[in-house]
Each structure stands twice: as structure tokens, then as C-alpha cells.
Nucleic acid binder design. Sequence first.
DNA 1: CAGTGGTCTAGACCACAAG
DNA 2: TTGTGGTCTAGACCACTGG
Lengths: 233, 233
Amino acid sequence: MSSVSLSNWKAVEAEVLSRIHSRQWEPGQLIPNESDLAEEFGCARATVNRALRAIAENGLLDRKRKAGTRVATNPVRRATLNIPVIREEIEAGNHSYAYAVFSSKIEEPPLNIHATMRLNGDEPMLHHQSVHLSDGKPYVASDRWINLDAVPDILNADFKSISANEWLVANAPFTNGDIAFSATSGDASIAERLGAKSGEALFAIDRTTWNNDIAITSVKLVFHSGYQMRTVL
Amino acid sequence: MSSVSLSNWKAVEAEVLSRIHSRQWEPGQLIPNESDLAEEFGCARATVNRALRAIAENGLLDRKRKAGTRVATNPVRRATLNIPVIREEIEAGNHSYAYAVFSSKIEEPPLNIHATMRLNGDEPMLHHQSVHLSDGKPYVASDRWINLDAVPDILNADFKSISANEWLVANAPFTNGDIAFSATSGDASIAERLGAKSGEALFAIDRTTWNNDIAITSVKLVFHSGYQMRTVL
DNA sequence: CAGTGGTCTAGACCACAAG
DNA sequence: TTGTGGTCTAGACCACTGG
């Protein structure tokens, strides 16, 4: 067997993954503790810890103090999605980027936005609607609410040179947020802005962000027909 | 300032995040190197490393040898999605789970499946279609192709007691996979299986998995109307 | 070439939780 | 109570890469 010394955590990770995939260690089974593995592999316990922690973060191992480390029975696979700035996503594909503002005005948010953002009173909100274009074609429509109490300076932003999203990324850091992915039948106005057929199935992202419990912004992005969000497992 | 000693990596992480959020360290700016921060915080360099690595994995820092560590300019936010076994997702919501097989037969895959799975020859494929039910209502429709060369034993599986997905999770570990999220107008047959209106917008996941370059399975999941996939940022 | 992050080590103590 | 993972330390060497 592996009497050779596994002297780095990537090698340890590979060996452990191999034992899991080959069913030498079966789902649900308790694997040896870190000290024993360190001895077997001829490396420090910290190295084993690094490898096992990486695997556990990926969902293939369950680790508990005192109870030990087990091979996950129903591995909950984790997929990490990159949520880029739209302009960069478009330019990364060698397309030209542009965007257009449809409407930008201060008004009362509807109840669902009020609830989603967990607003307390009736903070003044900026309602900002725009479309991002790739090679001149509609790419994604954005319907955004911005809490002016949190970022009053946004009223001075020049949305001819920078999108609301990029202004916020650069000027309003957030500490936490929610994101949801769904499918929507774009209503007539959204469909028109995207150049889609009315009622066509469109991919949507709803994202709300806070800075230490102060709501910053909530945005609904509706993508052009055929859009896919991809990643690896 | 923080003349107190930050003696664990979570505290260091919090302090660094605070400096980023407060703009004490601005986007694009080079931050002190690990040794200097270790000295300032009164902890070991390894502790600083652990904290900075965690932040970098989340996209808020860019680290390069020799070049040092910079605050990310356009933080590419990463969202980690948990992809559970359908049964567990349903049962976690305290609903009853069931599923029904519509069709299961060996046949030639269409060209797009052949390409997606990167098949070489004309491996025999099992085409398996089913629906998962939550409290008796359609939850998600599954259209799956399985490479019988990779998992011949699946022909002996009893799909009355276990779904194809769960059989594969338990018996055919994979080393890597692709996953894509999209919106689809379910065709008439899918819509019917899901009890959805024809043409209604539905959330879909396409997932293909391999075991060391041997394709295992490719599945399209189409969820019931209104389904959302959520996570935090 | 030289500065930075990446990693390994040996040992130590701690925190949690199973029995 | 006690075994296990979680973490910290001080020091060392390595690997990458900018200048």
C-alpha cells in the first residue's frame, strides 16, 4: 500500500479522496483519527488536518469533535457560483458593454420589498430600473431599490458613466446578503426591455444586501432568454 | 486602536474585514504583509495566514506571492449552493416524499447528450424519467441518461424502493461534474408531469458527472412552478 | 535576485460532545 | 470523564513571481 510518505496536504487529500471513491472507506464509516493518519502518512498532524478540513468543506466528510470523522452518507454537494459584476461578465466574453437607465426616481417601495429588506420605518428609497447590453443586445434587466439612508451619496452619482451596481460595489460595501435564483415569465414590460417574447421563461436573480443590519439595496435581475449560470462540482 | 492582542484567526478575520468595510484599506490597496500583521496583532504568522486565506477564498482579497495582498477592486462574490438529495430537501421541510418512474429503457442518446457527456463510442445508455413528489404534489421532474458501461449494476437496482439519483449517490461516486442553472418553458409533457401550465416558466438544473473522465450520468431536473434556490452571500 | 505568500513541523493547549 | 478535532506557536524551508 502507500508506505511512501505523503508530505504535503494535497497528496494527503488525494489519498483520502481515493480511499473514499474506491470505497475502501465506505459511506458512514468512521475513518482513523488525525494522529493515526499522520503516523501512517508520515507527516504532521496539522497536514492531515488541513487535508481533511478541505474535504469536509466540500461535503464529503463529516467531522465532529470526539465523535471523529465519517465519510458522508448522502454527500450534499456544494457548488460555488461566482457572482460577477455584469460589465465584467460581458467583457470577459469579448463583447462590448453598455447600459441604459429606464427610470430613476425616489418613491415608496412596495410591501414585498419593504419586507425583504427588513426595513424599519419608511426610509426614502431610490427606485432604479435599467438594462445592461452586450454588443448592443439586451443582456439583463435590473429593477433595483436603494436605501438612501444607507447611501445618500448615490444621488450625486453620474449614472451616465457608471451603473448603479458598479457604483454600489465601489462605494457601499456590504457585510452580508441573500440571493435567490428562479425562473420567471417576464411580464410585458420586462420582456419588451429584453427583447424577449411576452411570457417567455427567463432566468432571474434576486439579491439583497446589508451592512451590519442596515439594508443597502435589493435588486431583481432578469436575464435574456437562454441565459445559463454554470459552474463545476 | 487595536493594541489588544488578536489571538485567534476569527478575530483577525473580523479585524481585517472591518478595515476593508470601513475603507481604512481601500479597494486595490496593498495591505501589510503577513509578518507585519502578525506583529501588529500579537499572534503567529500562521494565524494571520489562516484569516487572510479565508477572506481571499471569499473573494474580498487578492493574494499573490511576491506581489502581496490587495483588497479586491471588484469583489467577485461567491455564493455556495448546497445541492442536496431531493428526498432530503423535501423531508427537511417536513413534507412527505415519494417518486414515480415514468419510463426506463435502454436507448441511443440524442446528440446533445452524447456531446455533453463527452462520450467516445456508442456506450449503451439507460434513459430514466421520473418525478419526485412532495406531499403528493409534483416537486421536480427528472430526465436522466446513465452510462451503463460505468455503472452496469444499476440494471439490478429496484427503483421501487430507491430513486435513480439516490442509487447513484450511494453506488457511483464521481470525481467531478458540471452544473448549470437556467429557466425553461416546460414542454407539454414536462408541464403535464409537474402539473404546471404549458409554457410556464420553470427553474431547471442540468448536471453531468464523471468518474476520472468516465461519464456516469447526465440529468435535467425541472422544478415545480415557483421554485427558488436560495443561499447567502 | 529577493520579497511574499504557501506550507510543513513538533509540540502544546483548548473546546466540544459522546458515553 | 476522556477522546477527538480545532487551533495556536515559533521556526523553518520552499515556490512563485515582480522588478
